[in-house]
Design a protein around this nucleic acid. Sequence first.
DNA 1: TTCGAATTTTTTGTATACAAGAATGTTGAC
DNA 2: GTCAACATTCTTGTATACAAAAAATTCGAA
Lengths: 218, 218
Amino acid sequence: MEQRRADNIAEALEEHIFSGSFQDGDRLDEVRLAEQFGVSRTPLREAFQRLALSGLVELVPRRGAFVRQPGPIELMEMFEVMAELEAVCGRLAAMRISEEALDDLRDANAKCQKAVDAKDTDGYYTENERFHKTIYRQSGNRFLEQETAKLHKRLKPFRRQQLKFRGRMAQSMAEHEAIVDALATGKPEESANALRNHVAVQGEKFHNLMASLKSKAE
Amino acid sequence: MEQRRADNIAEALEEHIFSGSFQDGDRLDEVRLAEQFGVSRTPLREAFQRLALSGLVELVPRRGAFVRQPGPIELMEMFEVMAELEAVCGRLAAMRISEEALDDLRDANAKCQKAVDAKDTDGYYTENERFHKTIYRQSGNRFLEQETAKLHKRLKPFRRQQLKFRGRMAQSMAEHEAIVDALATGKPEESANALRNHVAVQGEKFHNLMASLKSKAE
DNA sequence: TTCGAATTTTTTGTATACAAGAATGTTGAC
DNA sequence: GTCAACATTCTTGTATACAAAAAATTCGAA
């Protein structure tokens, strides 16, 4: 891993943090990382500033940068906000969605179903993401779309864990159908509720998430 | 304005952008600003990274940093998201709020009323902020609280404009009362709707906001 | 004049140098 | 052996130096 530009460094570090290469509390050694990336400390420090604002690292003055992995509580909070943001997207989209977008959703669902049948987790994941991002876009609010996508991205590593649990893909599919129905018939509150429940981490999903957290820590 | 630390520079620049000292599209000259702040380019560039992520500045590679003031459309989108986030806070708070917090809200409202009577815009503003931040906190979700407060801060300069319009403070007060009622009686949907309508920019408020935008541009 | 190529000047991006604070290790007193 | 004061080493924060890209300017041809 050498000779990267400053623009990419933040992204590369983000990847490392997401992938779990860095544990919570780890100090990001400027000189060591500079060597690894084949750059000087300057672009690294600029990357730290970005990561600090997005909450992935904590910048302690005169001490350095420390990675901050969300704990169980913060994670639950983030998922709750995710569910609410998706609900908002759905409520707005129910009033603003286009016919083309509805077709996109149906297409994504069809491909999701194929992936489920083929037990293709990656394929399911890709189409699932397209499904959700289409709804963000159809909220008709670019700012909301971006903010929702930002949190979606941040929760990605944890959501991926979720999909591996047995039966989750099939259940998720059924929920997708209900969401499309609510959107197609222009029912704001129904769309919002369907999306909120789809994304919310409750009951069994809660236990699965906690279990995956523990296995990560080991 | 001299001898500031890097930590403060981002904040100082933010202030300048919020206050309207910088127009949309203005280039932030590294050497000129470095002189003004009495520092070298290095800490300034670190500050730029932070501002870029929060959307206040656009970083064009090999070109520099340009301030990005939200246009009318983006502003409307941000207010729509603000209304929805406050609604979410309200819905959750209705289920989770404490008696002490309810008293805080009533206290803030009382002081708001005094400020209205005294035509004390600043005083009103302070207590209004306390009112809203109490609700964010009572959502029981720290992550939601922080995200909502972040957007609240970003919209501050535009909201302040709003309050100057005649009759707005009195109407706002009445809405606050309704919000407290809904929260006190533990009605999630009613609280959410009351807060959404309170924050949403519609009808007359829309025209006022647009008018204040025009006067700023002059 | 007007346009365009070549040259100069700015400005950004990165490396390096250096000062000051934090961490670490050592020594000596008890 | 333990603890504290001092010295040393590391690390961060900032300034400066330098290379490369972009912008501005000059100059000559049509």
